[in-house]
């Protein structure tokens, strides 16, 4: 099962037949295994890694540190729920250390992000401070290197 997950995490478009051939099981077994992983929500969905910059589409990435004074009796969860409802929020993490939440923003342009922080995030109840960091360049994202590098060459035939 782990091998199937690993294969799909690399290439979500692998067919059942390809999974079967690579792992040495039958196609029917592969189909059943994937169906079960989907049903159990181990596989939550299939996505595509896109290099927006290469596509020429403006797509800002930002990390926003959020400090807050959590609500009595409810803790951070109530604040988190309010933050994550905004569609601008790509990811949201509760952190240890100097701030409480890390909000990852993806999409739109800088003005959109600035507007979101100023008008939506900062004024939220319990939020006491924010610090916004814009990404200047993405080198590696979710395990994928996003910059072009020369391939190391091998001799064409060796013993």
């Amino acid at each position: 099962m782990e091998e199937i997950l690993q294969l799909l995490s690399e290439d979500a478009r692998l067919t059942d037949a390809q999974i079967a051939e690579r792992t040495g099981i039958s196609e029917a077994e592969a189909k059943d295994a994937v169906a079960k992983l989907e049903k159990d929500k181990v596989i939550r969905r299939y996505k595509t890694v896109i290099d927006w910059e290469r596509a020429g589409i403006e797509h800002v990435f930002g990390f926003i540190e959020v400090r807050c004074a959590p609500e009595r009796g409810v803790g951070f969860d109530a604040v988190a729920e309010r933050i994550m409802e905004f569609p601008e929020v790509h990811s949201l993490y509760l952190m240890s250390g100097a701030y409480d939440f890390l909000v990852v923003i993806q999409g739109g342009n800088m003005r959109d992000v600035a507007y979101f922080v100023a008008e939506k995030l900062a004024p939220l109840d319990h939020v006491v401070g924010t610090a916004t960091h814009f990404v200047l360049r993405r080198y590696k994202v979710d395990g994928d290197v996003m910059v072009e590098r020369a391939q190391a060459k091998r001799l064409p035939v060796t013993p």
Binding site: R154, L155, P156, V157, T158
Partner: peptide
């Protein structure tokens, strides 16, 4: 064989022992 393949940089090589 190396020399033959070397002249054909576009070939897919399954001849590499590394």
């Amino acid at each position: 064989f190396f020399e033959l393949v070397e002249r054909m940089p576009e070939a897919i090589s399954l001849g590499i022992g590394e």
